[in-house]
Computed example of a mutant assay.
Amino acid sequence: MTAHSELRLLPWSGPDGKPCYLSTDNDSSHLSRLADSTEAIQLGLADNFVTHALGVLDNEETDPDELRALAADLVGALRDTLRVATSRGQRLAPSQPSAQGGEDDLRLPAAAFG
């Protein structure tokens, strides 16, 4: 990823629940690396919750309280995943239309996918 001077949405909220941002032109700074690591952990947890949810939903005898707890976990994981996607989307370089496909032929760089 190249360095940017724009604000980066961090993968955590402040104590009042408001978004936190980082202003740096160094993608290798301690806080940038901490944010990258936190994003990776959040995405891994979301993947684990999906796998767990599939198992719970296959069990016809799942307790309603377990379903409610699972739903809360999934909502939290989805919230974190959306924050990661938003942050990464904001950091993408503006796309250039390809010579062949026009503006409808949008391609993301491999770095956009982690």
Rank of each mutant, 00 (worst) to 15 (best):
residue 2 T to H: 13
residue 2 T to E: 15
residue 3 A to M: 01
residue 4 H to N: 07
residue 4 H to D: 05
residue 5 S to G: 15
residue 6 E to K: 10
residue 9 L to V: 01
residue 10 L to G: 02
residue 11 P to D: 03
residue 11 P to Y: 03
residue 11 P to G: 04
residue 11 P to M: 02
residue 12 W to R: 04
residue 12 W to D: 00
residue 13 S to Q: 11
residue 13 S to E: 11
residue 13 S to C: 07
residue 14 G to W: 03
residue 14 G to H: 05
residue 14 G to I: 01
residue 14 G to P: 05
residue 15 P to W: 01
residue 15 P to Q: 00
residue 15 P to D: 08
residue 15 P to F: 00
residue 16 D to T: 09
residue 16 D to C: 06
residue 17 G to L: 04
residue 17 G to E: 07
residue 17 G to M: 02
residue 18 K to Y: 07
residue 19 P to F: 10
residue 19 P to K: 10
residue 19 P to E: 09
residue 20 C to E: 13
residue 20 C to D: 10
residue 20 C to P: 05
residue 20 C to M: 11
residue 22 L to P: 06
residue 23 S to N: 15
residue 24 T to M: 12
residue 24 T to G: 11
residue 24 T to A: 09
residue 24 T to P: 10
residue 26 N to S: 14
residue 27 D to V: 14
residue 27 D to L: 10
residue 27 D to F: 09
residue 28 S to F: 09
residue 28 S to C: 08
residue 30 H to F: 13
residue 31 L to G: 08
residue 31 L to M: 15
residue 31 L to I: 14
residue 34 L to S: 07
residue 34 L to N: 05
residue 35 A to T: 04
residue 35 A to W: 03
residue 35 A to H: 03
residue 36 D to W: 00
residue 36 D to C: 03
residue 36 D to P: 01
residue 36 D to K: 06
residue 38 T to Q: 08
residue 38 T to F: 05
residue 39 E to L: 03
residue 41 I to W: 06
residue 43 L to F: 00
residue 46 A to F: 12
residue 46 A to S: 15
residue 47 D to F: 10
residue 47 D to T: 13
residue 49 F to P: 01
residue 49 F to M: 11
residue 49 F to T: 08
